[in-house]
């Protein structure tokens, strides 16, 4: 019975999303759509990274590496899968959707595998040490792709077609994945596992003393977070129609960290807001020309001075909170 209700809710959400996407695609210029797509991809990155950096308190500064793994896998798998799928079900939107989602899942899996490889040995480390290991990983991945001739080397990978990878990244699929990632991360965060992750963040020694399997849980959070970055990478690849190693520089990892810090470390709502902020802020300031980067930096400084805990702190926007607010009752926790 519960499953039935949940399935119905999921179907309703997706149908609503599909309708909304159609309306937006019909009424909004492509430029605005592009910004919305980038915002969605940022949200996936930020919500994923927040699970490890915010909730678990383990600082990763190499997530661009996982994004790269996902992006390259997804682009390559998509290229090699599409002809077969199109042959089986006939070319069209359905074939594209199957190819894209299969490619995205494979991107998530390889990114998760990379997460296991990096996570298992290094999550025994704490604080700054983990940051250095992930930083190194991000750089190694980039250099590997830089020298991988079959994947285009430094020129990057854009498939067989000179016009680039197929434009599969549509509003519907980006936001469907946003819903999926947010749901998974939310369910993990508010489960027993999530409580244990928070315990690790607050005091790892105490958590260990309470028989929390700290290393195992850290690896779980890390791998989930890497998988989300992989999905975002795959969507990014098919939005840009091509990727190159330089797209996944250290700056990209830093951008992700800025998103979650602006939004509020440890808050899923905050990560969503931070991701959207990152995509929209610089585009809204286009009229300032070269000065927009100055104002952008100023904006970040102001946010940090006025709200050091980020826009949302560790609070969440939830149905329960809204209900309490509407009742005008006790303050939100």
């Amino acid at each position: 019975m519960r499953w039935l209700v949940r399935g119905a809710v999921a179907a309703a959400v997706l149908a609503g999303l599909l309708g909304l996407a159609r309306v937006i695609e019909g009424g909004l210029m492509e430029y605005a759509q592009r910004v919305l797509l980038l915002a969605g991809i940022n949200v996936i990155l930020a919500v994923g990274l927040n699970l490890i950096n915010g909730t678990t308190g383990q600082f990763s500064i190499g997530h661009a590496g996982f994004m790269a793994v996902g992006a390259y896998t997804c682009a390559w798998v998509g290229q090699h899968l599409a002809p077969g799928v199109a042959g089986a079900v006939g070319a069209g939107a359905i074939a594209d959707a199957i190819s894209l989602n299969a490619a995205l899942v494979s991107g998530a899996v390889t990114a998760a595998l990379a997460g296991v490889i990096v996570g298992v040995p290094s999550l025994r480390l704490k604080g700054d040490y983990l940051a250095i290991v992930t930083l190194g990983f991000g750089e190694i991945i980039r250099i590997v792709f830089n020298n991988w001739k079959a994947l285009g080397g430094a020129t990057g990978y854009s498939g067989e077609d000179p016009a680039g990878l197929p434009a599969w990244t549509t509003l519907f699929w980006v936001y469907a994945w946003v819903v999926v990632i947010i749901t998974v991360v939310r369910n993990v965060t508010f489960s027993q596992t999530g409580r244990s992750l928070i315990a690790i963040r607050e005091d790892e020694v105490a958590a260990e003393a309470m028989a929390t399997p700290t290393t195992r849980l850290k690896v779980v959070a890390f791998v989930l977070s890497a998988a989300a970055a992989g999905v975002a990478g795959g969507l990014f690849a098919h939005l840009q129609a091509g990727i190159r190693p330089e797209d996944f520089r250290l700056e990209k990892s830093i951008d992700m960290i800025v998103m979650i810090i602006v939004g509020g470390l440890g808050s899923i709502t905050g990560a969503v807001v931070g991701g959207v902020f990152m995509a929209v802020a610089l585009e809204l300031m286009r009229d300032l020309e070269e000065y927009r980067l100055v104002l952008y930096a100023l904006l970040l400084i102001l946010i940090m001075i006025l709200r050091p805990e980020g826009l949302f702190g560790s609070r969440e926007l939830s149905f329960g909170w809204l209900r309490r607010k509407a009742r005008g009752g006790e303050p939100a926790s």
Binding site: M29, E30, Y31, A32, R34, V35, L38, F236, L239, Q240, R244, E246, D247, L282, E283, R286
Partner: peptide, 13 residues
């Protein structure tokens, strides 16, 4: 690269 694509879309739209 992402901004370059944004820029061209903006110039057109």
């Amino acid at each position: 690269a992402a901004e370059a694509a944004n820029a061209v879309t903006r110039l057109i739209d």
